[in-house]
Amino acid sequence: MLLFLGAFLITQNFHNQYYYLAAFTVLQYIILSQGWNILGGYTGYVNFGTGAFFGVGAYTSAMIVKTFKIGKSAPFLELPILFIAGGLVAALLGLGLGYLTMRIKGIYFSISTLALAFVTVTIILNIDALGGATGLYIIRPRKIPFFTNYMEFLFLVMVALSIFAVAFARYIENSWIGRGLSAVRDDEDAAECTGVPVLKLKVFATMASSTLMGVAGAAYPYFVTFLEPISTVSLDVGVNSLAMPLIGGTSTWAGPLVGAVLLGIIQQIALVTLSPEYSLLVIGILLVSFVILAPEGIVGLFRKFRASLKK
């Protein structure tokens, strides 16, 4: 709540647009990596296809903007509708993925999520109504009450969504659901035989995960204002949303948060000072070094550090 109020005050007094753009990307990755972590971290199913869910959310949202044009008449109502719609469609895709977890595990599951991303790109490329390879232009509402600029409003909404995503992940982690998901991750047979409804929990995890991804995607069209399949349903999105929780630490909600903020900021700096290629390279190098040197992520390192202080 305080965070949100703080963010609101910033939008009222601070108007350098670049920082809003950079912050949007970081916030977007907080939502994506929390979403990824519910399935990848808590449940142990590594998803490379975040781009597909993100993209499906983005395209759903863009089509609603284009078809219904509610942005002008009801600008405050429009975004929630977009989020719900984007989340729902992504959740449906997640339901499909959930049933996939019934049949395949481990690396085979991961490869099929990769395939899902490629299939999604191909489908969008070949549907003219979705803009095909040419892409879609989305025009932001020019004016929005209380804000000098639509981007500032969008930033504030993303702050709220990120807070929600973190709170949601934290709630799951600390509830019986989270403990059941850990049991599923550790051993599915033992989980079943101790009364855990494995399939139900896996479907829940994939759907919750993909809903968050879809919601993050739903905000994207108004951010970029031009939607194009290859950069939207991109592997970069998938790799980033996987690298951030892994580097931050997958066992707890703080991991993806730390990872997304840290890597998001580093990437933005690299993007401006070096080049887009370098910003991806940074992620790559960090990911490899963390997987080898600190598999429990930054949060794990921090815990070890605190434990050693106590001794």
Partner: peptide
């Protein structure tokens, strides 16, 4: 087939809760 990420007590809590 223990749940390796949990402590022994947490291992027992799974069937207790579920």
């Amino acid at each position: 087939k223990p749940f390796n990420s949990m402590t022994v007590v947490e291992n027992l809590c799974i069937p207790l809760e579920y």
